[in-house]
Each structure stands twice: as C-alpha cells, then as structure tokens.
Design a binder for these strands. Sequence first.
DNA 1: AGCCTTGTCCGATAATATCGCACGACTTGG
DNA 2: CCAAGTCGTGCGATATTATCGGACAAGGCT
Lengths: 249, 249
Amino acid sequence: MLGTIKKTGEILQLFDRDSPEWGVSEVADLLGYAKSSTHDLMSSLAEIGLLQQTDKGRYRLGWKLVDLGQALVATTELRAVARPVLEELAAGYRESTQLALMDAGMVLYLDRISGTQPIRVVMTDMGPRVHPHCTALGKILLSAQPWSQIEEIVTRNELIRMTENSITDLEQLKIEVARVREEGFAYDQEEMMTDLCCVAAPVRDYTSRVVAAISVSVPAYRFQRSRNELRRATLEAAGQISRRLGYYR
Amino acid sequence: MLGTIKKTGEILQLFDRDSPEWGVSEVADLLGYAKSSTHDLMSSLAEIGLLQQTDKGRYRLGWKLVDLGQALVATTELRAVARPVLEELAAGYRESTQLALMDAGMVLYLDRISGTQPIRVVMTDMGPRVHPHCTALGKILLSAQPWSQIEEIVTRNELIRMTENSITDLEQLKIEVARVREEGFAYDQEEMMTDLCCVAAPVRDYTSRVVAAISVSVPAYRFQRSRNELRRATLEAAGQISRRLGYYR
DNA sequence: AGCCTTGTCCGATAATATCGCACGACTTGG
DNA sequence: CCAAGTCGTGCGATATTATCGGACAAGGCT
C-alpha cells in the first residue's frame, strides 16, 4: 500500500454530503499531516480532476469522479456480472439457476443455467415473460415495488391460477409479499408448475435498489429436504452479485 | 505535482466505456512504468476503492467513484455556483443579471442581481414565472428542448402579445428558436416590456445538458450601442458557470 | 488599522516509491 | 499432454521523491 495513495483515500473520504468543502489546513489538522504536504496532495488531486478548488482557494470534489463513476455504471452489465455466480451456484447443487428482472409488471428472464442432475427442471416450454404472483422471482421483484405499484400490476394481470397452490387472492398475496419483504427471500412451492419449487433472493445495485432477482429451481421431491441449504446459498450468491454491482452493507 | 498522484491520474484516465477493464502488465506497458510499480499503484487504488479487481485479477473502476460523484452532484447547487459569476457580470457593466430555468413550460427565476447604474432596469413588478416566448432566457431554455416539447409548451401557453415586438406567430418563433439553437445566445429586444432588452446564454452541467440560462437586462437606449460586448460577456459568464458545474469542452 | 488564518512556495532531509528479479498460477500452442 | 508463454504478485536494494518546517502574500475578522 503506497503511502501517497493511502493518504489520497483518507482525503477523499472526508468529502461527503455534509461537508463538501475542505481547506488545506483543516484537512492537515484532522489527518495529522504537515500543511505543506497536505497542500501538495490536494493540489495534485485537483490537477488530475479528482478535486477542484473554489475561487476562495478551498477544495471540493472534482468532476472527473462523476465521469469515471458514469463510465463504471455504464459498463457494468447485470448479466455479465451475475453469470459466473449463477454458474457456481448451479454447479454447487447441480440445479438450475436463473436471473430475472421486473419489466412492465412481468418477470423477464435474463439468463438461465441448467442443472446437471439427471432429473432436472427443464423450462424450455416457458416463455421469457411470466406472471410475478406465482414465482419466487416474481415475489421478490414485487416486494421491491411500492404497494401502489403492486396493486396496479396485480389488478392489471389478474391472479391467474397456474396450479392448485397458486395464490389467487389479493389479500393472501399481500401477506406473502410482506413476508418476503421482511425476510429477504421467497419460495415458490409448486405455485406455477406442479413438481417445480424455487428459492429466490434479491440483487441490489450501488443505490441499494433491487434491480433483479436470482433463483434456484428444484424438483419438488428434492426441494423438501434441501430447502434451508438452498436458501442460504441463494442468499449468499445474490449478495455476491450485489456486491459486484456496488452494493455494500 | 506529486508523481504518485500524476500516475494515478494517468491510470484512471485509461478506464472508459470502451475499455473498462485493464491488467497490470497492459497498463505498465502502455504507460512505460515497471510492472511491479504499476502493481503497487493499482492494488493501492483498489484498497481505497478507486479501483476494484475482478475474479480474474484484472482491474475495473471502483464503486467509491460513484459514491463520491454522487456526493458532488448532490452538493452542487446551481444558485450558489452561479451567484459570484452573476455578481461579477453585473458589476462589470453595472446592469442587472438573472438566472433562470425551465419549470413546467415557464421561465422560473432563481436569482437576480440588480445593476448599479442610476437608470437601471427594475423588475419588481415581474412575477417569478414568465412566458418563455418573449424573453431571452425563455428562448434559450426553449432551444434546449426537443421540438415536440416546444410545440406543446407553446400551444399550452399561447403566444401572448406583451409588446408590439412580441413574437406571436408559431412559425416565426420556430425560426427564432432554431437561430438561437444554432448561435448559442438569444436577444430580447423589447419583446416582453417596452424599453427592456436582454441577452441570454445557456448554462450546461456535466452532462452537457442545458440546465439553466443567465441573462443581462439593459434599457433599450443603452442596449443598442453595447449589444455585442454584452453578448460576449454573457457567453463568457455562462461558460464559467457551466465549467463549475462540470461542463467542459 | 492590526491580528489572525488562509493557501502557496522553497530547500534540505529522510522516508519511500521504484525497479529488476523471481515465484506460482493460468492460458496457449504445439 | 507437456512446455513455453502469459498473467498478477512479493521482495530487497537503490535513488528518486514525498515530507516537513519555515516564510510569504492575501484576505477575513475584530
């Protein structure tokens, strides 16, 4: 760890919404470096655009930070980031995993890794868009919406009965979504397709917003005995993806 | 200029939308530093969050950049940035200057510095919101909108005749807005109030978007002989504000 | 007007970033 | 399937260079 860069980090760290402007002396006092050294650091940072100085000689964050941040966000593709994690998750349990997001009130699948167990869940007959109320992914994505949006989505789509386990009552769905929002994960226990169970967890970006969800699909008979373990792994994988999207805490 | 920070700038500069990922050797070759030094730099930058490394050991921009960038944007207040420049502009010519932005199709005044000449433009009888079609500020702000928006705004507000110079014909306004968009400045020659003339110029933020406009107001008799000089100064001042908002080029 | 603090500049010293080299882990090509 | 090439990383000696105290001009404040 180079000292100059360590100090750079300490200096940049000082600038936030509450104190967006710092003077050289202030910083030198607070960090315990000589005023002249601090000046060298800050004026150099200003030269490369990480800081800028006001007309009064004090320093603010520089606009290059915005540029670089935008470049980062623009080049961070959800699918590319999620892919290796989904593959690892799929490989670990030899079950199918998928990545989806909410688009116009429907669950839109972005990626899918097939499990390798001899008897595995095959979803070739599934279209790319499904109703949210009967899938684990959908429940997660619903739970990230405000109640007004949820009601609108649900009333627009109607709560279609796919299996005998499907939730078709609005009140019952509200209870389920509230639970999902509380606990941070969702199950689908043969609610969309007989013999198909899922666990899903939310994927967040650097703004803490839920931008997607991932899930593991398992045949019902195998789901019962490994549910807790799968849930743990799915939450872990979702956390990994989230962190690579800039989410922390 | 500290060498380590100069190198930091060079390294960060490499990361953009086209090549968001770099390896240590690549960077070392391109910049002409030793591989080990480059490694020290990049791994240190990763430690303070300005970079992050992928699972394959290469480097990408770090999420701290987004944090800091957001903190900068959040704490950059248009009015506070524009104020000193407007004051200088007003002092230089002893005329009134103003800052405005487009809000719901109307020109919303954010700030105003009164001129100091004995006979000056007083605008106490002006409400905070005025129609865009008859002011220099409004024309600038209109010219930043897409044509569909302009038409909608204009048809919603109607082209009210304020003076005999007011533009009341849609086609005529379109020609004028096209000219403004082309040339980058706008005049108001007694179009809103008899004896009142203005020059306005656009203020852009770091996304190059026109977020506001500034203008200088002058009595008509004085305007005729100093128009070109005032235009130059207004454009210069608008450029200054824009640069402090992160606009460059 | 006078004092205090600010950001900046300069020169000597000592800390430290730099470099070459070597190592282990992959990937690539034969 | 092994070998030659790449990659990112760790270490130790050298010399570059960041650091520090002091001095300076410029504003801000009482």
